[in-house]
Simulated assay, not measured.
Amino acid sequence: MVPFKGRSFLRQYLPNKPKKWGFKLWGRCDASGFLHDFNVYQGKGTGIDVKGMKDCGLGGNVVISLCESLDRDCGYKVFADNFFSNFNMVKQLKSRGLEYTGTINKNRIHNAPLKSDNELNKKGRGSHSTVSVKDNDIALTKWKETKTVTMVSTYLTAEPVSKVTRYDKSRKVHVEVDRPNVVEVYNKKMGGVDLLDMMCSLYKRQIKGKRWYMYIFYHTLTIAMVNAWFLYKRDCVINGVRKPMPLKLFQSSVAEVFLKKDRPVSARVGRPLSMLQSPPATKKGHYTPAPPTEVRLDKVDHFPVAHQKRNRCRHCGNGYTQWKCRKCDVFLCLTPGAQPRNCFLTYHSN
């Protein structure tokens, strides 16, 4: 949901959302939260028509349209909640070589012979009932936990049943409850879209304006940034990096690269500093972070500037120097004599 209260034919009102007014987006994410495809909901009666597809309702049509970019018969598995699940959509995905698992509403199971809620309540917490429908292509599983939930899947059933620990309020103890396999797999694979929404809302750029398309544009930039961070975390795991940088630091590093890479140090525009209020004194032991690698090696406008006070060299860490790179804002050795040190050149070369 992209918040927006201005005038637009795409604006929707969703009373159950934290931000009730705005643009609704449909998205297809993997389990890690990486967004692969999305489109904008355009209102009632504007469901996306896919060639050769029967009407599967709004939710079903959305799932099939977002899965059009997936290769057929490659073993892809799709997970969604009860808003999207229905038999027509599941059969359409099955005919395209895509497996499906999700929760489903009771009014969409077409009177399948599952045990009633009262029967499962008598058996107690962890009881379940499973039936196969539509020539054994679709399996329905009803599970009793705190409440009953019905699952539909084209490749999973209740077997094998595993144990899971739950808290019993009446006895005030933890007990072991049977959990069907379809529920276990669904819980592991679902939540990618919610994770993406949460990460996009953390450091989102706040804008105000009347041009509705700018809100969608800036939201796509936010999604691109979060997607890049997900890829960065995956590469850190592959390369054995224990502590990847958090999203806030990653986002600021990307912004710094775009602002400084291949660009000279721009002169100050506006009033001279002498006419402005003097900046607050820096704290003792102030540390200047190193510039991004892309900025350090771009070979644009890196010049040494002499300072009155000396500081430790950022490259070698042994000597003290008064020379500082005006673009990278770090001290570097530039010492002639019998034992010359040119950390300035080495630092900007490799």
Rank of each mutant, 00 (worst) to 15 (best):
R179Q: 14
G47N: 15
K54D: 14
S116M: 10
L247G: 08
Y347S: 03
L231S: 12
R28V: 02
R312N: 09
F230D: 00
H286T: 12
L35C: 13
L249Q: 13
C200H: 00
N350G: 11
P18I: 01
M199C: 05
C29I: 10
S162M: 11
F79A: 05
N187Y: 04
K204F: 00
D73I: 01
V265A: 11
N239G: 07
C328A: 15
K17M: 07
V62Q: 01
W323C: 04
G60C: 02
N136R: 11
G191H: 07
V182Y: 00
G57K: 01
C328S: 07
E256K: 10
K163I: 08
F230N: 05
K144S: 06
C328K: 02
K106M: 03
A267M: 11
I238T: 08
M214Q: 14
N342F: 13
A267E: 15
L58F: 07
A281I: 13
N181C: 11
I223Q: 09
R211L: 10
Q92L: 03
D73M: 10
S252W: 07
K188W: 01
F23L: 13
N342V: 09
V241N: 12
D117S: 13
A158V: 02
E184L: 07
N111F: 02
D329E: 11
W229A: 02
Y215Q: 02
F344C: 05
M198C: 13
D49E: 12
A255M: 14
P272H: 12
P304F: 01
P291Y: 02
R211G: 06
T150G: 02
D55W: 10
M53L: 13
C200D: 08
V182D: 03
K91D: 10
K134V: 06
L140V: 01
Y287A: 09
Q277C: 12
N107P: 00
S69K: 10
Q308V: 08
G43W: 05
K261M: 15
V78R: 03
G317D: 04
